[in-house]
Design a binder for these strands. Structure first.
Lengths: 339, 339
DNA sequence: TTGTAAGCGTTATCAT
DNA sequence: ATGATAACGCTTACAA
């Protein structure tokens, strides 16, 4: 049973391929009679267009590519869900690639997607990414590009982000207003902008509220075992008797790593030390004490990112000028028991 | 800057398209001189083949499709990672679709992938899926298919699974050997085979060890809020004073939902009630007490599933007969603090 | 209303 | 060693 083609239908009906094609696409210039006949036979033979041929003709694949640092990650997997939902709505398929936080891999994957001739690309950059020719090459290929969450400001494309600095500023301000004075920060790697911004927000909040910033209260959790880094840093605080009454963590996982040690060491949370996370992973509600955190709208980010991309693809198709925009999503503090 | 084509290179070099094509593909019947010239110019013009045309010619897309119930799920996201890793190794791209546990959606998505003419399809079925024509239609299209984790035994294709019944049997036997006698089971929905098998393993283990099976000790956690179901069921056990000294849960999340209530109610785990999970989600090590669970090798399952598919695709390409196989992955008990 | 024919960019067959 | 030509299956001016 070979695949049915337009040609086959045309032959069986004794008409031209053109007419068959038109009949199936609701062209006005086909008689109702032939149209009906074509449609009937097409259904009978289970005809469906050969997408390879359509792609070649129309020069579009109705497919987009997504490059993401890690899939096994509460925030990113939510973003993926949002992207898939929007793509489904728009009749697009999504090719997903995991860059594994490796710049070289990300670069290679951009190449793969360009080769595949996807209609657009969505990327959240790796922590290593510091050069951007691969992104610019996407633009040069006239392929639409939208960056999200981990972005590069210099690249001239649309972006969807949260205001990490502000979110972090608000979180720390919240702690200060609650009376905490010795607030440590468990920060992420030095390169990604999010991590930098969250640190900056932390610092600014302290300064704005008359607390002198103390670099010794900033602890690095930057390996891919950040959870363990956090555990060790908490241990350091306790064993070295560093004076700390609250910890503001760069992520929920880091917060949980810290809490794990604190609980094991018999430290009461938040009485002795408060802990503040970042992301609002649903697990943070399952642990005790429930973690206070910043809600980072992953699903919504996915939705908006994809939406922006599809809008841009459509504009380009109509030869209309595309303007890049940056959407900043709102975050909010979820107060629970750990602060 | 339009895309470079073979034609363009041929014209610039004053040779035929055929020769250019051959030169770029290491055919033996091209003189070293022209070959060198072609390759040089191709590089200069950043030539890369138009995949749409290649697809049409070769009738393959070097792309596979993956349909999965939920992405935001510790086990499934690990499977995805495994699949992507294997696909990368074999130079394939992966289109991912989320069926959201909806049979109708799964069915539609199979259609989308078939339309897209992917070279193969990977599916973990939804809990609702009870009819299989859509899967058989994949086979009729001569498209390779591999089912994993949530499979349908009747469908004639390769499969990768774990032995849920055995894993569950072993888990419950472990509890019995530890001296627990009133073992409750927090089970999953009635339809999916995994859920049924885990229940059956539970029941068999009791019977084989002289404990009469008591249906009143089986609690259903089947909504998409299974975590909350578990919480409520645990509450029921405590408030209604149901005699239980251990809970064997169908998943880690369900186990955590139960633990959440038990901890809130001041029940000591495992002293008063032990809790046993299923999957070995990394979070189970982060909570206290650390959860005893069954290690379910998600990443490995992804690797094997994809590998099976690619092998099958290759066999088909060579017109060799394909034999379907079922791989059963080993699970093991991870003993921690909750039992 | 219907059909002819060109073209999308490759690959493969068969001559030269 | 090189090239002419057909074919993959579809879309779309343009004719009839």
């Amino acid at each position: 049973m070979s695949e049915t083609t337009l040609k086959e239908i045309a032959q069986k009906l004794g008409i031209s391929i053109t007419t068959v094609s038109k009949a199936l696409k609701n062209y006005t210039d086909v008689s109702p009679k032939t149209k009906a006949a074509v449609i009937e036979l097409a259904q009978e033979l289970h005809y469906y267009p050969n997408s390879f041929a359509v792609n070649l003709r129309t020069k579009e694949s109705k497919t987009i590519g997504l490059i993401i640092p890690t899939i096994v990650h509460h925030f990113f997997s939510n973003v993926i869900e949002g992207i898939l939902e929007e793509a489904e709505k728009r009749d697009y398929l999504v090719i997903i690639l995991q860059s594994n936080e490796k710049y070289e891999l990300e670069k290679k994957q951009v190449g793969l997607l360009l080769n595949k001739r996807v209609d657009g690309i969505l990327i959240s950059l790796t922590n290593e990414t510091a050069e951007f020719e691969h992104l610019n090459s996407i633009l040069e290929h006239k392929t639409s590009l939208v960056l999200f969450d981990k972005i590069a400001k210099i690249v001239k494309c649309s972006k969807v982000i949260i205001d990490d600095r502000k979110a972090s500023y608000n979180a720390v301000t919240f702690l200060i207003k609650k009376g905490y004075k010795k607030i440590a920060h468990f920060r992420g790697s030095y390169t990604p902008q999010n991590s930098i911004d969250r640190f900056l927000g932390y610092k600014k909040a302290l300064e704005d509220h008359g607390i002198t910033y103390d670099p010794n209260l900033v602890f690095l959790c930057d390996t891919n075992q950040d959870l363990i880094d956090a555990y060790e840093n908490a241990k350091k605080i306790i064993t070295e008797n560093i004076e700390v009454d609250a910890i503001f963590a760069v992520s929920d996982l880091v917060a949980m790593g810290a809490m794990k040690y604190l609980k094991e060491a018999g430290i009461e949370i938040p009485k002795q030390i408060a802990v503040f996370g970042f992301s609002n992973w649903y697990v943070t509600e399952l642990i005790s004490p429930k973690l206070t955190t910043v809600d980072q709208p992953g699903f919504e980010m996915g939705l908006q990112t994809a939406s922006l991309l599809f809008d841009e693809i459509n504009m380009k198709k109509k030869n209309l000028p595309v303007t890049t925009k940056t959407i900043t999503l709102e975050t909010k503090i979820i107060e629970r028991e750990s602060t």
